[in-house]
């Protein structure tokens, strides 16, 4: 019974994946990709990884879909888009990809015994940190350096997006996200939903210490609400040169680095927390990170500056 349900799920995923590649229109491909994100979120739930399911639901279905659909909107429709090259090449590449897939499948079918796991190592440190959500413990204590570097990647990504602005527009506002035709319904949604969404975002961040949830999930939800407001034309994207905005981008990573450096003096070294104070420090870092993630994700979707800065 249970395996039959999983088979159905896999079948649906493969349908969405194949259609993502084969759809002629690029917008159809993006819709298929959004469907795939929803399905994957259910798969993560099935694999009992609730934290990941939350991330996939917020990022996979929401944020990535928005970026891709917005790109579609700015490209002219052309017939040739979905056209794949000749059949002979398709077969050759298909065989090559099938071989790669078969190799990966072989790895899955011959797993090492016993299965390797770092869970005991994490369990040994759960007490010291004082949080009950193992994933948050890994993200902010056990492998905190990874998380810090990932924040740096996010900031670098944003700088990369901003750097694509023509010199003339540097520091100006990104192109507006508003819908092509104004809609009263959309305005209504953008007035009603954000207060609720912000509450849920804060809840996810706060809940992340002891239950599934956390900075990414909460931050993404906050970013989504901001984007909704921008799409309904209730607020333009801010000028990228605004100092307050740049401070918000930097506050999370900066606090994280400061806490890391403080570890040299107050604990065992970089990114180690003084015993007994781990939980409050981690929660403070999480709050700052969530703010930064929300702003960074929102600005990455908004894109590079497309207008001269106001005088």
């Amino acid at each position: 019974m249970s395996l039959a349900v999983d088979l159905v799920m896999v079948l649906l995923i493969l349908t969405a994946a194949v259609w993502t590649i084969l759809a002629r229109d690029r917008r159809d491909a993006v819709i298929a990709f959004i469907v795939l994100g929803l399905l994957l979120s259910l798969v993560w739930m099935r694999l009992l990884a609730v934290d990941v399911a939350l991330t996939e639901a917020a990022v996979g279905g929401g944020a990535t879909g928005l970026v891709l659909l917005r790109a579609c909107a700015r490209l002219l429709p052309v017939e040739a888009d979905g056209a794949l090259p000749g059949l002979r090449l398709q077969v050759a590449v298909g065989v090559l990809c099938a071989v790669v897939g078969a190799c990966l499948a072989a790895v899955i079918l011959s797993p090492p015994e016993p299965a390797p796991s770092l869970a005991p190592a994490v369990a040994a440190h759960m007490e010291d940190v004082g949080l009950k959500n193992p994933v948050t413990v890994v993200l902010l204590a056990y492998r905190a350096l990874d998380t810090l570097l990932e924040k740096v990647v996010l900031v670098l990504g944003l700088i990369g997006v901003w750097a694509l602005a023509p010199d003339l527009f540097w520091g100006g506002r990104p192109a507006s996200l508003r819908a092509a035709v104004p809609s009263g319904t959309l305005t209504f949604l953008a007035r009603v939903l954000p207060p609720i969404g912000v509450l849920i975002g804060i809840y996810l961040v706060w809940n992340g210490a002891d239950h599934p949830g956390g900075t990414f999930q909460g931050g993404t939800v906050l970013a989504a609400m901001w984007l909704l407001v921008m799409m309904a034309d209730l607020g333009d994207p801010p000028e990228t040169r605004a100092l307050r905005l740049r401070r918000l981008v930097a506050v999370g990573p900066a606090l994280f680095i400061a806490v890391g450096l403080a570890g040299f003096g107050m604990a065992d070294g970089f990114l180690s927390y003084p015993p007994g104070y781990a939980k409050p420090i981690i929660v403070a870092v999480e709050v700052a990170l969530a703010l930064s993630i929300a702003v960074i994700l929102g600005l990455m979707v908004a894109g590079p500056a497309a207008k001269e800065p106001d005088q």
Binding site: V181, S183, T185, L186, F188, L189, V192, L193, I196
Partner: peptide, 20 residues
């Protein structure tokens, strides 16, 4: 309640989109 709000708005938007 959220699905009510979101679903109704989405339907309206899709309908406007299709009509245009």
């Amino acid at each position: 309640a959220l699905v009510q709000l979101g679903g109704a708005t989405a339907s309206q938007l899709i309908a406007e989109f299709a009509r245009r």
